[in-house]
């Protein structure tokens, strides 16, 4: 079973982060929601590993108390 990588894995972190924020710079909230949805879907397909995706999804909302 593959594990979600949570150690640094991006070779050029500042370049990546700038590109991610630039992507949304001129977008409305609605457009950002749309772009993010597409981005997530593209990345999930690229990863293609349900175990890693499940772990990432759980990690992403770990800070929100269970309802």
């Amino acid at each position: 079973m593959s594990k979600l990588i949570t150690e640094p894995n991006l070779p050029r972190p500042d370049d990546f982060y700038q590109e991610l924020t630039d992507l949304h710079r001129d977008l409305s909230d609605e457009q950002s929601l749309d772009v993010n949805a597409r981005l997530i879907l593209l990345l999930c397909n690229h990863i293609g590993d349900q175990d890693v995706l499940s772990e990432a999804m759980q990690t992403a909302r770990k800070h929100i108390p269970a309802q």
Partner: peptide, 24 residues
């Protein structure tokens, strides 16, 4: 909800050009 709709619409738009989204 809004997030579900955003994902749903994104799947549909992507499906037009990218086959990966069609099974979704």
């Amino acid at each position: 909800n809004g997030a579900n709709r955003a994902f749903r619409d994104a799947v549909l738009w992507l499906a037009k050009d990218y086959t990966f989204a069609r099974p979704l």
